[in-house]
Amino acid sequence: MRPAPTVSLNGARSAADGPAVPMSPQDLAEAALDAIAAGAGEVLVHPRTPCGRQSLSPRVVGPVLEALRGAGVGVPLCVDASIGAEPDPAERLERVRSWSVLPDRAAVSFAEPGAGELAGALLARGVSVEAVVPLGGPAGPEPMARFLAWPVRTPGRVRLAVELATADPALVAGLRGLPPVALLLYGREAAAWPVLRLAARCGTGGRTGVGDVLHLPDGRPARSNAELVAAARAVWEREAGARAGTGVTAASR
């Protein structure tokens, strides 16, 4: 089966990062459709106000989701619910509880305070959780410890998204004993393509998009999310083929 990576449409980028970064609901919808045509299987979006600020307000999240679905985006939609969109943990909870239009999934950073309560509130609303845990970077072991202390009562509705600072196989090997949830590996900027290759070799989920990286594997600037997805599919198939040829055991659960 060919891989279907998640595409991070815009991340924490701004219009200053170039024309490849979609900002408005209409631009996000167009970028999502193009990325899906290139092979993306899920869409991660950071909703923004008209002035470009990230927001979890229902007046911002709802129109973005409606624009995406109204344009015919049929894959799961994930909304970022991090401190970048709302710094106050209590306000993040209030925003999520007031959503009138729900995404399929929401990304919750376990490097941030209140992650467990926020994840529980999302699940209570019927929204699956992307539990984001950084590894190998300045955050240290605390985010993983926080995730492990959070009771995963519905494994089928939780996915662990591990952000790797480097493509270190030893870090992935240490994930084998974690709760039986789906696993996705990703990196940002210089780590993005090495981590994608590692994800392909390990058999986990992967991610790309201008929210994570602005350059193709050969260093050329990416013109769009769709171009990044197409490149990711090519990298994935090449690395997965090499894994199959050597008999490497997958790390996915």
Rank of each mutant, 00 (worst) to 15 (best):
P5E: 11
A200Y: 01
V213L: 13
L65K: 15
I83V: 14
V162L: 04
E112S: 14
A131K: 00
L118S: 01
A167P: 09
P5Y: 15
L68N: 08
G203A: 10
L160Y: 02
S24P: 04
P50D: 02
T6L: 15
E112Y: 07
T6F: 13
T49L: 12
G247H: 12
P138Q: 06
A106M: 06
P19N: 09
L171P: 01
T204P: 00
H46Q: 13
G211V: 00
A121W: 00
P87C: 02
G70A: 08
A71V: 11
A191P: 03
C78I: 08
L216A: 06
A90T: 14
A170N: 05
G114W: 01
L135N: 00
L196F: 05
S109Q: 13
D80M: 13
S57F: 08
V132Q: 14
G209D: 02
A4Q: 13
V181A: 05
V64I: 12
R233N: 11
R69N: 11
V108E: 01
D17K: 06
L175M: 07
L228A: 01
T166K: 13
A192C: 04
R146E: 11
L196S: 10
R188T: 10
R159L: 13
E42T: 05
R146Q: 01
V235K: 00
W236C: 03
R223Y: 09
E86R: 06
P89M: 02
A115D: 01
D88V: 06
N225C: 08
V158N: 06
D80S: 15
L164S: 00
D168T: 04
E130A: 13
L28G: 02
L185Y: 02
V61R: 02
S128C: 10
P63G: 08
P138C: 05
V235F: 03
G120V: 05
V108R: 01
